[in-house]
């Protein structure tokens, strides 16, 4: 997910030179209410995360996060203006106030968090580099890949991770580097390599581009940390909290078993945690400047985290990505949200 080009590396310098960090901001929340929609920076084309469907709607996990924020703030999940952003442009767009939130498969790294003038609000998808192999090869683990021809893309951190992984495990490999994901999958399909390596989320969508998707499997091994999450501009803590807790609310809802379908019944639940989340007991939206029913709006219009995951990248989608790390902490994953109280 990291485009390793010069512009991206120069960006912090440019931002700092212009003194763009720490600009005095009007309240983003007020701006959003005035304009009547949340301006959300998304990827123009990332299958499963944000992609245009035939009815002119953006669909995907990243865009659903935007919809959740809009539901919490404005009470209407459809009040989102999507701004398609380039990987270099994205930080400028959030810096300059062209978008209110950036939800664009952006990896949370220390340099981005500290020198780009943005704050990451959490992790919406734990991604990482993985391997895809032809299923008739019979490989079950990445450690069986000694001597393999590995297709990957140039200019990404994938190349570097790959070298590290094979060196650490004392294995040899032969890298075959392509310029774009389309070329890489074409090379894999043509048999130029045994293994295709990229971020797991991308591998699943590349797999779908094969004439027979079942002819390849994505191995469970993950060799790098790529936590993807939404980011906001530095200097507006209220808005930071809103975006952060919108995601937490979805995770908490899944943990409590509240779904889009049963949220109406859950309004009458005796469980104090549920009553607090849905705004029946106390007003936990107040501290963020939101209505008491902010979380109810998210769940009734967008659903909980699990529903969002299934619909966009999980079993309910074409990709069938396993929950893996993205499962709740109670179910073997690392998804854990602080409680609402």
């Amino acid at each position: 997910m990291i485009d390793n080009n010069t512009m991206a590396r120069l960006m912090p310098v440019i931002l700092l030179t212009l003194g763009a960090t720490g600009l005095a901001q009007a309240s983003t929340l007020e701006d959003v209410r005035d304009q009547g929609h949340v301006r959300c920076g998304v990827n123009a084309a990332q299958p499963g995360f944000s992609a245009l469907d035939d009815e002119d709607n953006y669909r995907g996990l990243d865009t659903d996060v935007c919809r959740a924020i809009a539901a919490a703030v404005l009470g209407d999940a459809e009040s989102v203006r999507y701004v398609p952003l380039d990987s270099v442009e994205r930080f400028t767009a959030i810096q300059s106030g062209e978008v209110d939130v950036l939800s664009r498969t952006t990896t949370w790294t220390s340099s981005r968090d500290t020198s780009m003038g943005v704050n990451f609000t959490g992790v919406s998808y734990y991604d990482g580099q993985a391997f895809m192999v032809a299923s008739d090869l019979g490989v079950n683990s990445a450690l069986e890949l000694d001597g393999a021809d590995v297709c990957t893309q140039s200019g990404t951190t994938s190349e570097l991770n790959l070298a590290d992984f094979f060196r650490v495990n004392d294995m040899s490999y032969n890298p075959i580097v392509f310029d774009s994901p389309e070329q890489a999958i074409a090379g894999f399909e043509a048999g130029r390599c045994d293994v295709l390596s990229s971020d797991a989320s991308q591998l699943y969508s590349q797999r779908m581009q094969l004439p027979d998707p079942d002819s390849a499997v994505v191995l469970a091994d993950i060799i790098s940390k790529e936590p993807l999450g939404p980011a906001v501009r530095q200097g507006d803590d209220q808005w930071f909290n809103i975006v952060k807790w919108s995601l937490f609310a979805m995770i908490n809802a899944e943990e409590m078993g509240i779904t889009q379908a049963n949220v109406e019944e859950m309004l009458d639940s005796e469980d104090p945690d549920i009553a607090r989340l849905l705004g029946r007991d106390g007003n936990y939206g107040e501290g963020m400047g939101l209505e008491a029913d902010w979380a109810y709006q998210i769940i009734s219009q967008v659903g909980n985290y699990g529903e969002m995951f299934d619909r966009t990248v999980g079993d309910g989608s074409e990709f069938k990505i396993a929950r893996g790390l993205n499962a709740l902490w109670t179910e073997g994953g690392i998804l854990y949200a602080p409680p609402i109280r």
């Binding site: 299958p47 992609a51 398609p84």
Partner: peptide, 15 residues
Amino acid sequence: IVQAALSDSRWLGFA
């Protein structure tokens, strides 16, 4: 827009 359409999960692989 053609490129954007190529990433629709329902229509992958028709580049």
